[in-house]
Structures are given as C-alpha cells and as structure tokens.
Amino acid sequence: MDLLVKLGNIDRRVIYILLILATLVPLVRPIGLPFSVSEATKKFYAAVEQVPAGETILMAIDYSVGGGPDIHPQGQAVFRHAMARGLKVVFVAFVTEGTEFANQIIAEGEKMAGKTYGVDFVNLGYVPGSEVAISAFAQDVLKVYPKDVRGNVTADLPIMQGIATVADFVLVTEFATGIPGPSEWIKQVGTRYNVPLAIGVVTVMGPQTTPYYQAGQLVGLLSGLKSAAEYEVAMKAPGLATAAMDAQSIDHIVIVLFIILGNIAYFAGKGKKGR
C-alpha cells in the first residue's frame, strides 16, 4: 500500500527523463503505427482538390514560432498539394513571424521544377492591425499590400492579375496559433465574402474551433501536427509529421500512465486514511 501511495510522489525529473525517452526511442526506431484520415482533414483536402488548376488560392500564415512546429507542417502540406495540382498561392501574414514561415515554405517551392516566384506563388508579407488589417485587406488587397516582401510592386506581378478583393481567390486558407485566428477570419471574410474558408489551427485550439466547423462556417479544419500527418497521408506523401506520430502515441501513453498512477496513489492513500 505504501508503495502505491509513493507512486503519487515520483520525482518530477524522473517524469521528465521518461518523457524524453518516450519521444526519442520511437523516433530512432519507428514502429509505423497506421492511422486513418479524419473527416475534417478529408474536407480540407477536398476543398483544395476541387479548385480548378491554374486558379489562385490564399494562404494566410498567422502562426508564431512558439506553436510553429505544431502547425507549420500543415502549411507545407497544403502548399505542396496546391503546387502538385497546378494552383497559384498568395501568402499573407497578420502575425509578424508568418512572413518568415511563408518564406520558408516558398523556399521549397522555388526548388520545384517549373515553379517561379511571382507567377506560381508570392509572399506579400505582414501587415499590423490584426482584425482591422484582415478586414482592410479583404476589401482592397493591393492598397494594403502595395509591395511584396522582396520589394516588387504587387500590381505588376503576374500572379496578382485579376486579384482585387479577397473574393477573387477561389479558396481562402488560414493557419493560426491564436489571434488573429478563426474568429477574426470568419467575421471579416467568411461571412462577408462569398468565398470558401478552410482553417488550420494548433492542436490546443482544436476543441474551440470545432463549433465553427460544425456550424458550416468552415469548409475544412486541420488541428495540429496530427492533422498535418493525416494530410500527408491523404496526399500519399508521408513527411516529418507522419514520422512524428509514433512518438506522439508513446508520449500520450506515458502521460496517461502517470495520471492513472497518480490516481491509484490518491485512492490508496484515501483508503488508508479511511481505515
């Protein structure tokens, strides 16, 4: 009984070391646990799949470095999908770091055969103002972004021909770690313009974003690294997100075990007191 009670007081450093091992071992020796693609991810994938080749979509990269690894693979996967389908992608950001993340995605695009900056993709960069900026951008793209991040005049770029308002994109996608996020985009774009909106969020935001998806305000929803892995599987092109899923599983098991041990210790201790 005493041993059980002691389980409730494991040194925190033991927990830390076990967590590190639980992450490292499956990364070094992958198990390759299979997983299915969720409904919300399938819908997001289908939304990109339905855009006719040659049309332009918007990718708003509104994530910061803190949550980056949880959501950046989503951005990369959607961009690869768009490129494979022959779509054009315009990147914008309403969180400062989004500019750099978009540059990192574009760096990959520039290595793809037959894809050119300014023709197949462009990074318009960041503007401050959060919700106000999204609203202003939606109304007049060129006024808010007279130049792209490389100093080109936006109106002169081939990819920007025919783009005046946000309604000129065939699909709007946004990836968020916080504010601005789904709430602001649904308010300023989703309900005001006749354009489908699909959103990716960090895992933490998944539960609070689901009501929008369930209410039909979003055509697709990605939630964290797991959804990125699902997207990679849907594209039949597994990447780093898929490789992370074994470690994700083992880590969850370890944390659940700790919680269960803690509870066993609690009830064991309570039983002891009761006697």
Binding site: G224, K226, H252, I255
Partner: peptide, 8 residues
C-alpha cells in the same frame, strides 16, 4: 497533444 508535438 500540441505540446508533445513541440517536444517532438
């Protein structure tokens, strides 16, 4: 789940 992703 999200924090585990960052650790990974």
């Amino acid at each position: 789940m999200g924090r585990v992703s960052l650790l990974i």
